[in-house]
């Protein structure tokens, strides 16, 4: 932590020097210190969705914290985010101030479809939040806890109908399959009902169309706190401060079933490492501001900040995990 802060202040000092020298010696200094005077946030999804809210949250916090006042946001929709990715790649030379919001979506789409780009074709700045998956049932469910649910599924994998907010082969389906697989049940035997988004999946569960849903539990915090839905377990290594009484899957004898929907920021391919560092510094600084904390708390986001090599390593592992699930389910060939 301390290392990062020092690096930031050094950069700021240099930025001041370079501003003085900029007019005469721009090429010599531009590599040493990067000045960020404006930020363009690119969202590949429509207004109102999760990615859009992440983008708008970053925009709001950057402005309110006084870090950067000139922050514009652009929704360039289409192809599940791929149109924005293609745009970022095609116009890379003009996108030196652009941060694109994406994350798990880019990984899963490049794995499962004829979708050319992967996260390696753009430049990862850092991960921001991670929405951890949880297993939800109705409060009156015969499966009072996760052990009972697992036992029932072991006896008959089709005893419980699963629902989720993504299509088959999407992230919610993968999460459900991961749970079954780690519990020693064949995920292919699972009955999965796809809904158009988490809200509709919750309505399906509340109306008993399905008996269990697997989705990021932060989306259901309202219902969990109001005792309308019951969170049986979360798919993380440790318990969450938001729901401290809920066990992790590992605690109940299902190890290795961890999955989260990660939101991360990307820059154009070919952006200089110094510039990427400068943006990572900015992000690092941003998430420590009260303005960001306010946005985060309001949305119930779970922080998952990683930058540089750790972020890259995480994405490589993330891709590996999802790939394994898609192979298990038969969506892609090994």
């Amino acid at each position: 932590m301390t290392f990062k802060t020092t690096s930031l202040s050094r950069r700021q000092a240099l930025a001041g020097v370079s501003a003085l020298a900029a007019s005469t010696m721009l090429p010599a200094f531009s590599q040493a210190a990067e000045v960020i005077d404006r930020v363009q946030i690119l969202v590949g999804f429509g207004v109102g969705g999760g990615f859009d809210q992440t983008g708008r949250g970053i925009q709001e916090a950057l402005q309110k914290s006084g870090l950067i006042s000139n922050v514009a946001l652009e929704n360039r929709t289409g192809g599940g985010g791929s149109v924005a990715i293609a745009h970022l790649i095609e116009t890379a030379s003009r996108q030196q101030n652009t941060l694109m919001v994406n994350g798990t979506s880019i990984v899963i789409r490049s794995l499962s479809r004829e979708f050319q780009q992967t996260f390696r074709d753009v430049t990862l700045v850092g991960t921001v939040t991670a929405e951890i998956f949880g297993i939800l049932v109705n409060p009156g469910s015969p499966h009072a806890d996760i052990a009972a649910l697992t036992a029932a599924l072991k006896a008959n994998p089709r005893a419980v109908r699963f629902g989720g907010g993504s299509p088959r082969g999407g992230i919610d389906h993968c999460a459900a399959a991961l749970y079954l697989k780690q519990a020693g049940i064949d995920p292919k035997a699972m009955q999965y009902v796809a809904y158009d988004g988490g809200g509709k999946a919750m309505a399906g569960l509340l109306g008993s169309e399905v008996q269990c849903i697997v989705m990021p539990f932060s989306e259901a915090l309202t219902q969990i706190r109001g005792n309308q839905l019951k969170l049986l377990a979360i798919m993380d290594e440790k318990r969450s401060a938001d729901v401290p009484t809920v066990p992790t899957l590992a605690e109940v004898g299902v190890p290795g079933a961890t999955l989260a929907n990660v939101r991360a920021l990307f820059m154009a391919p070919g952006t200089s490492p110094a510039r990427v560092e400068a943006f990572a510094d900015l992000l690092d600084k941003l998430i420590k501001t009260p303005a960001w904390e306010e946005v985060r708390a309001r949305n119930g986001w779970n922080m998952f900040f990683k930058r540089g090599q750790p972020a890259q390593d995480f994405f490589v592992q993330h891709e590996k995990d999802i790939r394994a699930m898609l192979i298990e389910l038969g969506f892609i060939q090994a």
């Binding site: 088959r168 082969g169 292919k188 009955q191 389910l329 038969g330 969506f331």
Partner: peptide
């Protein structure tokens, strides 16, 4: 006829 059927959707 060319629309791909995803695996395990035979149910």
């Amino acid at each position: 006829f060319g629309i791909k059927a995803p695996p395990s959707s035979d149910d």
